[in-house]
């Protein structure tokens, strides 16, 4: 019997009635090299969102509303023993710079802001607005 990976990459190996498990390697959640996850749309963008970990409250709004599945999360366990997603970064290969994540970010000073593609992320973090000038 063909393995899921064989069925995912060669037509000849597909078996009748095979509902493929997700992921080429379901255990380690490895995606096939033909998954668009491995394609780059970064050149669509002129501005990029920059993520400020220090301000983030892990509400995960950015994760749920990003149409391009860009937010990288780490599963952590909170004080009450419940699993929750901690935002650890943005996949810049997949980000098209739409700005939705910045709009939905609820922290008083945003934890996500748009910067020109050519600004270094570390420099962007240094330019982050302080409480006083959060209005503009």
């Amino acid at each position: 019997m063909a393995t899921p990976k064989e069925m995912m990459t060669t037509w000849d190996s597909i078996q009748f009635g095979a509902v493929l498990p997700s992921f080429e390697d379901p255990k380690n959640k490895v995606r096939s090299k033909f998954n668009s996850f491995n394609y780059k749309v970064a050149d669509w963008r002129v501005e990029k969102p920059v993520f400020n970990r220090n301000l983030c409250i892990d509400c995960d709004f950015c994760w749920v509303f990003c149409p391009d599945s860009c937010f990288e999360v780490e599963e952590v366990v909170n004080k009450r023993g419940k699993k929750q997603a901690k935002i650890v970064g943005i996949n810049y290969d997949l980000c098209k710079g739409c700005g939705v994540c910045v709009e939905v970010c609820p922290t008083p000073i945003k934890s996500l802001l748009m910067f020109s593609e050519f600004v270094d992320n570390d420099d962007a973090l240094k330019q982050w607005p302080k409480k006083e000038d959060k209005k503009d």
């Binding site: 995606r31 998954n35 668009s36 394609y39 149409p67 599945s69 098209k96």
Partner: peptide, 9 residues
């Protein structure tokens, strides 16, 4: 997954 070509936003 991302990497699709739907318009930004």
């Amino acid at each position: 997954n991302g990497g699709h070509r739907l318009c930004p936003g």
